[in-house]
Design a protein around this nucleic acid. Sequence first.
RNA 1: GCUGACGUAGCUCAACUGGUAGAGCACCUGCCUUGUAAGCAGGGGGUUAGGGGUUCAAGUCCCCUCGUCAGCUCCA
Length: 691
Amino acid sequence: MHPSSSDRRTLRELLAAEIQKDPSIVGARVPEGRGSRTVDLHTPIAPPADASSLKPIRASDPEGLHMIRHSTAHVLADAVQRLFPGTKVTFGPATDAGFYYDFDSPKGAFNDEDLAKIEATMKEIVSKKRPFVREVVAREAARALFDKLGETYKCEHIERLPANVEISLYRHGSLPGAAAGHQEAEWLDLCEGPHVPDTGFIGAIKLTSVAGAYWRGDERNPMLQRVYGTSFASEKDLADHLKLLEEAKERDHRKLGKELELFMFHEYAPAMPFLLPKGAFVYNRLVSFMRELYVDYGYEEVMTPQIFDKRLFETSGHLPNYRENMYLPMTAEYLDEAKMSLSVGVHHDHHHEYKAKDAERDRAVVDHLSEMERLGLKPMNCPSHCLIFGSRRRSYRELPWRMADFGRLHRYERGGVVHGLARVRSFCQDDAHIFCSPETMFDEIRSFIRLLYEVYAAFRFERVDIKLATRPDKRIGSDEQWDLAEKALPQALDEAELAYEVAEGEGAFYGPKLEFHIHDALKRSWQLGTLQVDYALPDRFELDFIGADGAAHRPVMLHRAILGSLERFLSVLIEHVGGNFPTWLAPEQVTIVTVSEKQAAYAEELGTLMTARGLRARADLSADKLGAKIRAARLSRVPYVAVVGDKEVTNRQVAPRSRDLNKDLGPMGLDAFIELLEGESRAPRLAKRSA
RNA sequence: GCUGACGUAGCUCAACUGGUAGAGCACCUGCCUUGUAAGCAGGGGGUUAGGGGUUCAAGUCCCCUCGUCAGCUCCA
């Protein structure tokens, strides 16, 4: 399989002239197939016919940063093996934010002190500017080498590598002789690259944390010690990154949720949020915003039960496929246990004390438990919606039917995965299911995408990335159905001129899906919206409608959400705006503060007036001085503070101060100020569609 | 669920190797009558997450339970 090495040359040779001019070149994008591949300077390739097809990568490019980080992971492993002899290495890739390396260390977990020592050693290695060297070895030689070094994980990995893969090693200079972890002059790792030319390209290093991680990510495997870190081409880039982390910490919705009294948690209902008045306001405003849009987009809202007979979830397939996430008050196993301990149905001839009365009582208990055993809390709305659709004969004239539901859902999530409002056990989605004929599916997808963009624009999410998740290996439904569904999704995206990425095989088992990822103010990506095409549930519930031809047809069901979980959306929104809700969402829009107690009556009058006009105003009549009141209002992130002193009382004015401009706007007539607030209170909408 | 760390007043955090639980903010009361990010004084507030153990003595050491955090895995 390997091309003969004689005609291959490294990029260092091929790009020699360019590197001479620009020493920051660390590799290139090399055309391969329809796309391209990132190659470092160490790796020989067959020279392309057209030398200009090699696009140089500099240390400052994203791919260059990736190489820097991957190289830093090697330096990390080098340092760890030097400081903690006996430590075995496993994998150490670069990630979006940095890199990590997983170790099997006889010492166990590393502490902060260890991290500091490791970091110092890494810096020492980096300062030597030692070159990375790539070497191709035969499989057996590699096997023997890592066997000798006692690197059992690497040996296992070599075994798993496909036979046609070239096995390469990367070495870089460690400290002299026996000090190196591998008892070699140079630290080496089984690695396919790419790496920077020398360790000097690593401009700044920071080890951030340690955590346990399973070998190969499988919880049945031994736990390894993962050291996380990040690195950059320069100290300035690192400083910028750390500042961003600091900012993210400041905006953490759990912190702001507490400070701004938006929500709370209690150990009596772990991972189930309590929305306090202010948080509940924002939540309800989100719902009312969606409802306004639903009017224009032709949705109808329904309300459905919380608790169901489990037969519903048998029909829908949730019990077989989703059981571990469902809240079941009583399971068959518990019922059996209860029967055993109550000894119902067991003869008690030798127990005089177990009387007929006891048996009767125990049977009553079991009857009650048996009834409980039939129940389950809904984890999704779709089954109820199928019941509604199927409740009577439907005509094609009723389709498409866009059925919205803000019903509360309960899903059991494992203890380690819950996170503030972002991952909870009790939540609500801006959920809707569109029942339509296969022929109108395309139009529905198109209309949904327009709605989705209108919603995201209202929250000023500037960038949306779309992923198309296609058929997984394990699936239901016919290939024809899948073809149809997988054709409709990209067609709608193409028409809207939206770029997307394909995620092969990541669709739901019942249909392909679109995922909509937004970028927040701190450039972090979150999946919010989703659209799933489903042929399976209509089948399982035997749904049909009478077509124009008088025959029964099976509808297609589109599962769709834009905000996703309202709780999660709230967490994203809080962090996106840093707690500074825009006026239309702010639980309190204006705080009226008095200069002295003399203006109290006027302030109260203003509060009443504005509240009557539908604004959210409050008068702060506390004994604090003006500065203190303004400070308090600013800390609570109110968009406007309306200052009233004697001058304002006399002229029926206010002196507003804007949160977003952080300045005093000067005296303003009362009506003008109310108009300003009313204008900002309307949710942002796109222009109506023409026809 | 697993690995590790953590849990002290409403919030943020102190209390050296076991030796009388504190501060700032917030809250309440009073004084000040105030002009754009903290006026002054006084006061109330704790079974140190819960339970068990070791000890003359436990916030501190050990065990269990619950919860939280960082990861792993999973996901809206």
